[in-house]
């Protein structure tokens, strides 16, 4: 089983990296860019048998380590 995890900054939390990327894109004449938020993408290989059980455990992984829920949201996709 394979899981994809997307960790993104919550709305309203300042993202200096996103700002810098946006600044660079604008300096390259991509003027249509209105905002950039930089996040993380992770791929996990899992040996779990049941999708339901694994989803529960992935959520636990995100809450405990993979995301800091003070400032980040996470989204899980299981293949």
């Amino acid at each position: 089983m394979k899981a994809k995890i997307y960790v993104t900054l919550k709305k309203g939390v300042l993202d200096p990296q996103g700002r810098a990327v946006m600044g660079a894109l604008k300096s390259m004449d991509f003027n249509e860019v209105k905002d950039v938020r930089v996040g993380k993408y992770m791929e996990l290989e899992l040996s779990g048998a049941s999708k339901e059980e694994e989803e529960k455990r992935l959520r636990e992984m995100c809450e405990k380590l993979l995301a800091n829920t003070v400032v980040e949201n996470y989204r899980i996709e299981i293949e």
């Binding site: 939390v13 200096p16 003070v70």
Partner: peptide, 16 residues
């Protein structure tokens, strides 16, 4: 903060 002994989080400096 990551261990939960203090609230909040230390993020990347505003000026990067």
């Amino acid at each position: 903060t990551e261990a939960g002994l203090l609230p909040g989080v230390l993020m990347r400096n505003k000026g990067l």
